[in-house]
Design a protein around this nucleic acid. Structure first.
Length: 816
RNA sequence: GCCCAGGUGGCGAAACUGGCAAACGCACGAGACUCAAAAUCUCGCGUCCGCAAGGACUUGCGGGUUCGAUCCCCGCCCUGGGCACCA
């Protein structure tokens, strides 16, 4: 019977994880020294929306990836600040609250409590002193302050804009609430309605937002995210061209085109139905048809109008004509929904030969098609079966015939500009940001309307404008915002003149809450400012931001915009908030997307209860490349669990046995692993880092090596992935304090450079053998070694090598 | 339609700058331990030929460049994601 002390203690993840969660809280292990840190590292992840379902595996995948990185940085000696919060305002919460009939004020705190429990359980290195909850008046007070800064700087303005309107529910609908043109709640046909709404002038910043994307001093972002933002900003170069009305009146229709080279092929024009010149153009004969078309277009909801597919082209002839400034010919002017009032000038010159949409329209209404670009070597006379949008040379374009497309653009714009008919210009796809929401669950926009003074900002000292606690938060038949129904809140003295005035009843977009939360985290304990200057200077810009590419445009662009405005107003020294951003991938399940209907949704709690948080974390990081995502398979957790069991056993043996002599290949593996895992962690290549750790463990086991120093290395390197287990192992090794007080072990390059290397020998490009040669041996030496090798000789035979390719220390290829 | 990322064993994947394809893991098979099972340990595991040594073939498909291609070029097919009547 062995003494009890040598009985191996089994690894019990539940006990270990509970113990260390408590220790971390008691010892305040995860709290950064915000005012004194010497090597500050702000490790940010996208704060979750606290849904009723709880954290899903996608959240945990992202958080584990970010947390693993933060823990690695900590082991490198950085003072890591890793905060978390809750993006709890917004239409998602409100719609869910409506659906289940529970007030969001009750629902959201309940969800947040559940999220906190789950976040604690998975073992994130969170600083729980610095939590942001966007629905807390102590936070949204400063969201309102941000609005006021933009307002005062002239970057917030009000203008009429269209919204989706359900005539039956008498309420505004978000685009997501419109399904196939019908209200998702009552099924009525959705219409457009025009309301006065607040906008931020993000378009003023388009140029800078684009330029910084390619400035490595300011931003190092995932290429896919940069690409998405570039496309969203959507800069295009072209010209505005004026087409005079054909009846001799002074007016002209101004169009925007990116293809001025095709102007000789402009055989008609199309205006958006709302275009102001339609009334001037329409003839008596066409008036009835035009009015009917405009009314039908106005009635359609926004989603349907913008949806494309293979939709048939519709439109109506106005009866009016304009003059093509290039040909001098009169061309008919039509109106059609496919031309949008809010892009370009709301009017186009239609070149059916070289634009797919114009071609479809011309085909539908029998309009003439004139080809003006021909691919080299083709017959320009053949009728087109479809629009030709490729490259070529100009034809049927007078003196410009024979020019290439790019030359043609320059020449024609120059020619038209001389006659005052064209101006080179650029356009952006980006629109101003509409932040008004005709809803309850958000921060009230801090504006008061006074009959005498107009729109007056609420004084900063009076913030927050608290969201009143009203039981009837649902939109109802009255057609008025829920907040407007409460007179005691709605009517308020004008901050300027004291007269009875009315509050703005819209709340702001959730994306405004999340467009500055990273500025608040270090300063959540500061009551009288949105963010403390010294803390901000110490911790920002964010050193690492990890999140999903679903936020590649909106959240990440709005955050950049708000930071840029605050920078210009002198509130912070930097204009880009996130120096490094990395997009992570998506998790699918058993090869398919997760969905409730498929019944393959992963409930993290169940897996953590069964396997422990460390195994779950490790599996998430192992199942595929972090930045690409991967396939979650329930039987895959066994691998990481067996690995952790082996680590646990090695620690037990190391504690029990004295160290023996360490074999050279074990030593080499140790240093290779130190190097490889550090490099992989830095690059977020977690799956291969874990594979390297597994190899290290396999080597230690095969060599029957329980050397304490090597096992200590292993524990430190496992710590970013399996923090609870690593802490327990650290303690069992007899080390003091937290493993996160240790330093990442540096590899010794001398250990890794062996005296001899194995060189692959190819004959005619096919691998035939391997030879051991001295490191950095020359070609002659390696060739001699290869030719002395029997295996190689079989393939070379008596032939004289025609050519020899030598890659030092790697490969020798003999071509015969 | 446009943009981006991919396509490699039964499965998840690896291969860093054009240089040993399949590391690591799952599943599976055989064996050891066990009364038995589980756990654990050992071995095997791309396909074909071969008792074996070994050989031939193999990274979605078809071409090309190269001494050499999963990697570069051209043309296709398929999957995932984003944008989408943006002139």
């Amino acid at each position: 019977m062995p003494p009890e002390s040598t009985t191996p203690v089994a690894y019990d993840p539940q006990a270990v994880e509970a113990k260390w969660a408590q220790r971390w809280a008691d010892a305040r292990t995860n709290e950064a020294d915000l005012d004194g840190a010497c090597r500050p590292f702000y490790n940010l992840m996208m704060f979750p929306y606290p849904s009723a379902e709880g954290l899903h595996v996608g959240n945990l995948f992202a958080f584990t990836g970010a947390d693993t990185y933060g823990r690695f940085k900590r082991l490198q000696g950085f003072d890591v600040f890793e905060p978390i919060g809750f993006d709890a305002f917004g239409i998602h919460s409100e719609n869910y609250a409506i659906k289940v009939g529970v007030h969001p004020r009750e629902l959201i705190p309940r969800n947040i409590a559940n999220f906190r429990r789950q976040l604690m359980r998975f073992g994130g290195m969170f600083d729980w002193r610095h939590v942001v909850d966007t629905t807390d008046p102590a936070y949204y007070r400063w969201t309102q302050w941000v609005f006021l800064q933009l307002f005062k700087a002239g970057k917030a303005y009000k203008k009429p804009a269209n919204v989706n309107w359900c005539p039956s529910c008498k309420t505004v609908l978000a685009n997501e609430q419109v399904e196939h043109g019908l209200c998702e709640r009552c099924g009525s046909e959705v219409a457009q309605r025009t309301l006065e709404q607040w906008f931020f002038r993000i378009t003023d910043y388009a140029e800078r937002l684009l330029a910084n994307l390619s400035d490595p001093a300011k931003m190092d972002w995932s290429a896919s995210t940069v690409m998405a933002q570039q496309n969203w900003l959507g800069r295009s170069e072209g010209a505005e061209v004026r087409f005079p009305l054909a009846d001799g009146r002074a007016d002209a229709i101004t169009v925007y085109t990116t293809r001025p080279d095709t102007i000789f092929g402009a055989t008609f024009m199309v205006l958006a139905p709302e275009h102001p010149l339609v009334d001037a153009l329409v003839t008596d004969a066409q008036r009835a048809a035009v009015d009917a078309y405009r009314q039908a277009a106005a009635a359609r909801d926004l989603v349907a109008r913008r949806t494309v597919g293979d939709r048939e082209k519709t439109g109506v002839f106005t009866g009016g004509y304009a003059t093509n400034p290039a040909t001098g010919a009169p061309i008919p002017v039509w109106i059609a929904e496919y031309v949008l009032m809010d892009y370009g000038t709301g009017a186009i010159m239609a070149v059916p030969a070289h634009d797919e949409r114009d071609f479809a329209f011309a085909a539908a209404f029998g309009l003439p098609v004139t080809r003006v670009i021909a691919a080299p070597g083709t017959d320009a006379g053949t009728p087109l079966a479809e629009a030709y949008v490729g490259d070529g040379v100009l034809v049927h374009s007078g003196r410009f015939d024979g020019l290439g497309v790019e030359e043609g653009k320059r020449a024609i714009v120059g020619w038209l500009a001389e006659r005052g008919a064209a101006t080179p210009t650029e356009r952006w796809r980006l629109r101003d940001w509409c932040i008004s929401r005709q809803r309850y669950w958000g921060p009230p926009i801090p504006i008061v309307y006074c009959d005498a003074c107009g729109a007056v900002p609420v004084p900063e000292a009076d913030l927050p404008v608290e969201l009143p606690n009203i039981p009837d938060f649902r939109p109802d038949d009255s057609g008025v915002s829920p907040l407007a129904r409460h007179e005691e809140w709605y009517f308020t003295p004008c901050p300027s003149c004291g007269a009875r005035a009315r509050r703005e009843t819209d709340v702001s977009d959730t994306f405004l809450d999340s467009a500055w939360y990273f500025l608040r985290y270090p300063s959540t304990d500061v009551a009288d400012r949105p963010f403390d200057a010294a803390r901000t200077a110490r911790w920002l810009p964010v050193a690492s931001y990890i999140g999903g590419n679903e936020h590649a445009v909106l959240h990440l662009l709005y955050s950049r915009f708000i930071t840029m405005v605050l920078h210009d107003l002198g509130h912070c020294a930097f204009e880009e908030p996130f120096r490094v951003f990395r997009a992570h991938g998506l998790i699918i399940r058993d090869g398919a997307k997760m969905s409730k209907s498929r019944g393959n949704v992963i409930v993290p709690d169940e897996f953590i209860a069964r396997w422990g948080a460390d195994t779950f974390r490790m599996y998430l990081m192992f199942l595929g490349p972090f930045q690409e995502g991967g396939d979650f398979r329930s039987d895959g957790l066994a691998g990481p669990r067996r690995f952790l069991d082996k680590v646990w056993a090695l620690v037990g043996d190391a504690a029990a046995e004295p160290a023996g002599e360490i074999r050279r290949e074990v030593l080499v593996k140790q240093h290779q692993t130190r190097k490889k895992v550090a490099e992989d962690l830095e690059a977020l290549h977690y799956n291969t880092a874990i594979a390297a750790l597994m190899e290290f463990v396999n080597v230690l086991r095969e060599a029957n090596c329980h050397d304490r120093a090597l096992v200590r290395d292993l524990v430190i390197m496992v710590a970013p992935f399996a923090p609870h287990l690593a802490e327990e192992c650290w303690e069992r090794l007899g080390e003091a304090g937290s493993v996160f007080g240790a330093r990442w072990p540096a590899h010794d390059p001398a250990v890794l450079s062996a005296a001899t290397v194995e060189v692959v020998v190819q004959v005619g490009g096919k691998t035939r053998s391997r030879v051991q040669v001295a490191r950095d041996a020359g070609e002659a030496e390696v060739l001699a070694a290869a030719l002395a090798d029997e295996q190689t000789r079989r393939f070379v035979g008596d032939a004289t090598p025609r050519k020899v390719v030598h890659v030092p220390n790697r490969l020798l290829n003999i071509v015969v």
